[in-house]
Each structure stands twice: as C-alpha cells, then as structure tokens.
C-alpha cells in the first residue's frame, strides 16, 4: 500500500463548492459531493449538465477555478491525470485502457512488469507470475478467466472492461471513475459490468459512475447526485427516491 490511511472514518473523497469556467461560462458552479469507501455514487444529468467536467476535475484533467477537493482527509491539487492516478484516483476508459495485443497478465502489469532471473543471471519478464497474480486479483472481484495467456483483443468488450477495472484495483485504486461504462456493450455484457461494479464495494474502493441509464443507476448506486446546467440540482439516497423524481431534478421544474 502506497500510504497509510490516516483518516479511515471520514469520507474517501470530498468535493467542496467546486467551479470551472470555460470562456466566462460556468461549466460547473459551486458543486459539492462526498464519496465514502465502498460506496457507489451515480452522477446523473442531461447532456451538458457538467458531469464530465466535474469528473475531469477530480481526475486531474481540468484544474478547478474555485472550490476544494479533499482526498482521504487532505486537500489535493492534481496538475495532471498521472498525479491523480498515482494517488489512487483512476478513471476507467473503455478504449484507452488496454494494449489489445498483450495478454491479461501483461496488461495488468503494464509499466510495472515483474522480472525474474533465468540461468541465475539473465533478467527476464516473469510472464507466468504476472498471469497468476493477475488471475488472483481478478478472482478477488469474482472475475474468472479460463485463460490468461490470450491477447485481450480476443476478449469481449465487457471482459476488457473487467480487466481494466481489475488492474486499477490491483494497483490500489481507491476512487474509480467510470464514464458510461456500459455504453458500447451488448445487454448480457452490461449485466456483467454492473455485477462487477457491485462487487467492487467489497474491495473498499469508492465508485463514481456516470450514466444516462436510470435503470442502471437505480440498480447499483447507493446515492445519486443530479446536475443541471452546471449546478447541483439535488442529491438523494437511491433507496429513498424514484426514477420520476430524478428525472424531474434533471430537467428542472
């Protein structure tokens, strides 16, 4: 583990009164939210409501023009996405995550390959151990792959998504941000990814999840934050609200 959890009781991530201006227009204005360990937070809102801008500030793509982000009890200011990733805030992108021509183990360990010595002196990449450890990590999320030595090109979109998420968890990601994770998938694959997000709760990571699909939102989220025209229109516990109410918050009125 990269660093000790000094403040285990407080929220994992806290966003306080955050704003972002693009050319004098508020894309996000004075939005606050918090995310607890093991919680799935859904961000809902119409196109242009500011969902993507908000998560891009959290993941270090944009720097906020106002407000504060606190991560594990400390204020943070990420100059770039790498800095956010290094601290454990990982965004899962569908197409950008994996090298299609490498196997599952190589993808999970990409950039951090395990080495061993052959003949006692020659350093070589330890593919067997990378596959085994990748398999164990995925198994903890209840993902079973029959073969770990195939290029991930040969896996389906949902399987690749699962590997990208598994990799993030393997490398101690605490906050996983997913922008429309099921958008490009067929229905059976969507079910699998939803099940995987549910399983993530057990790993202690917090999930921020953007979706247009109210069915998905109500199925797996614990809380829903609704944005409208850059402002926070409301926040509800999923168990205490209805799709109708969320739609009303999204469109106003």
């Amino acid at each position: 583990m990269a660093e000790g959890d000094a403040d285990r009781s407080g929220p994992l991530l806290e966003v306080k009164g955050i704003s972002k201006l693009f050319g004098g227009v508020h894309a996000v204005e004075d939005v606050s939210l918090s995310l607890a360990r093991g919680e799935v937070l859904a961000l809902a809102g119409d196109n242009g409501a500011g969902k993507s801008t908000l998560i891009k500030m959290i993941s270090g793509v944009h720097r906020p023009d106002g407000g504060e982000i606190r991560y594990r009890g400390e204020p943070v200011d990420f100059p770039n996405p790498q800095a956010a990733r290094d601290r454990g805030i990982e965004t899962i992108y569908q197409d950008l995550a994996l090298a299609d021509n490498l196997d599952v183990g190589a993808n999970v360990f990409l950039g951090r390959e395990l080495m061993c010595r052959r003949f006692g002196f020659l350093p070589v990449i330890d593919r067997k151990r990378m596959r085994e450890e990748a398999g164990r990590s995925l198994a903890e999320l209840d993902i079973t792959l029959h073969r770990l030595d195939l290029p991930v090109r040969q896996l389906s979109g949902g399987q690749r998504q699962a590997i990208a998420i598994g990799r993030a968890v393997h490398w101690q990601a605490r906050v996983l941000i997913m922008d429309e994770p099921t958008a490009a998938l067929g229905v059976p694959e969507q079910r699998k990814v939803m099940a995987l997000i549910r399983n993530l709760r057990g790993s202690g990571a917090g999930v921020i999840f953007i979706s247009h699909n109210l069915g998905d939102i109500f199925e797996i989220s614990d809380r829903i934050v609704v944005l409208r025209r850059g402002l926070k229109a409301g926040e509800r516990r999923t168990a205490e609200t209805t799709p109708d109410e969320v739609v009303r918050l999204m469109v106003g009125g």
Partner: peptide
C-alpha cells in the same frame, strides 16, 4: 524477454494506454 521489448509491443498495440 525484457521490458524494452514488452513496451515495443505495448506501444504498437495501444500508444495511449502505454502512455497512461
């Protein structure tokens, strides 16, 4: 057998993912 070779394949497979 080396990281250099592994990264050669990774860059050819997905440049963006390699960078990330």
């Amino acid at each position: 057998q080396t990281r250099f070779g592994q990264y050669t394949y990774a860059i050819g497979g997905n440049r963006e993912a390699s960078q990330r």
